[in-house]
Design a protein around this nucleic acid. Sequence first.
DNA 1: CCATCTTTGTGCACACGTTCACAAAGACAT
DNA 2: ATGTCTTTGTGAACGTGTGCACAAAGATGG
Lengths: 254, 254
Amino acid sequence: MATGRTHRPATRSRGIPEATVARLPLYLRALTALSERSVPTVSSEELAAAAGVNSAKLRKDFSYLGSYGTRGVGYDVEYLVYQISRELGLTQDWPVVIVGIGNLGAALANYGGFASRGFRVAALIDADPSMAGKPVAGLPVKHTDELEAIIEDNGVSIGVIATPAGAAQQVCDRLVAAGVTSILNFAPTVLTVPDGVDVRKVDLSIELQILAFHEQRKAGEEAMAAPASPAPAVRGGTGGGKGPDGDVPAVMPA
Amino acid sequence: MATGRTHRPATRSRGIPEATVARLPLYLRALTALSERSVPTVSSEELAAAAGVNSAKLRKDFSYLGSYGTRGVGYDVEYLVYQISRELGLTQDWPVVIVGIGNLGAALANYGGFASRGFRVAALIDADPSMAGKPVAGLPVKHTDELEAIIEDNGVSIGVIATPAGAAQQVCDRLVAAGVTSILNFAPTVLTVPDGVDVRKVDLSIELQILAFHEQRKAGEEAMAAPASPAPAVRGGTGGGKGPDGDVPAVMPA
DNA sequence: CCATCTTTGTGCACACGTTCACAAAGACAT
DNA sequence: ATGTCTTTGTGAACGTGTGCACAAAGATGG
């Protein structure tokens, strides 16, 4: 545990901004679709529309990779697919392990998007002994005991955690100890990892909550002119009720 | 193409920055855990650690909600739980529909995090007639034909799309036409929606690709002594003989 | 070979987000 | 009451991301 570095330096990687990196897969997908339709070239305007972004942003993003376009024409689709793939590291094979083969883990194992882009599911791992050997998505589920061996034997550096929240940190620790340096976490927990290990979090309920916020705001604005009481059913829960604004709970900060 | 606005007006919600809204669920989760352990108050430092963020950021975030803390003491846990819940709109009941009951849809239906936070699965919908009536997570799967009726009858304003990419836009259009104004999209497609409809995207393979980028960088830095050019620096976990590495399309933009 | 037209690549200005650092506010002991 | 100690709330500096607008680069046609 080095004391020098702060926790998550967000690694402004090497001239390529993080925000750009996050969009490259988006461009890649749009380009792959064009490639399959044998479209030879595409303009920044068209590609941006397909990827759902602003064209100026797209051009700036690409400018970080180099000058791969041709003025007056656009971008060569095949060439760009290769360049982005290479930049993202998808020209090599990335073995991944998925830990926690519940509903979500099984869904991930079956998800075609993984295998199709340089990722290979090296193993499915679960703590439940009764799962061991059971085939999921064509692979036999391995027991947690084998975790370290699997990671070392396959040179796995990316791990996916789809366990319940309670087990996530423990699994994470073992993954890291065994050599994994990138983790995709689906468990609703904050993972603590040593420096040099990347963690990305996907949290289903957080996304819904963000939507609820905007939804509430929309409903509120809409009902501004209408009577004070909004239409949706009110869930008082503990009986606190949801009265008008001033009607806050009994508990005040002492 | 009713692309609508290309940029999000969401930022100006109500003085609360989008980045802050995205963190509120994180704080809420940490606070709920504290509440269950009957911790009465918490300092910004402690809570920030639990949520995995910087304490100054947390305080600034809370300052957008109001002055809910007590100097020299910290924040009252219960009070803050309520305030954040209310701000996020979780004090009311949000019926949601999940469309596409494959592996992922089933996982979502079973995911406890939904029900536990003001969200109620109103219905599971699938296009496959043979799924109809089959119970998933205790609910009978409905056929797509009933989509509009379900949404109207239940006052659903939030929809979750877990269909294959090809069906997503069509489902989206039907959801929107039926009255849904917020969509959580798990299909790897860019959805086009009219103004006033919010879409959030969760893309599993994109997250992995971002990890691969950083992983490649780490591997490259480690094994590189004299970086002269953006040389491929191929170094994978496997033996590497992954084929089309050297014989890449040397296609140049014509 | 020149004129025109299209589209890239980017300088610049602005908006948004993060972090620091510190004064103000309150708790608590004496 | 008064002083000390803790912790919030926030002004200000800084860094990152976004979008406009335009010059430069190249294609295309006469």
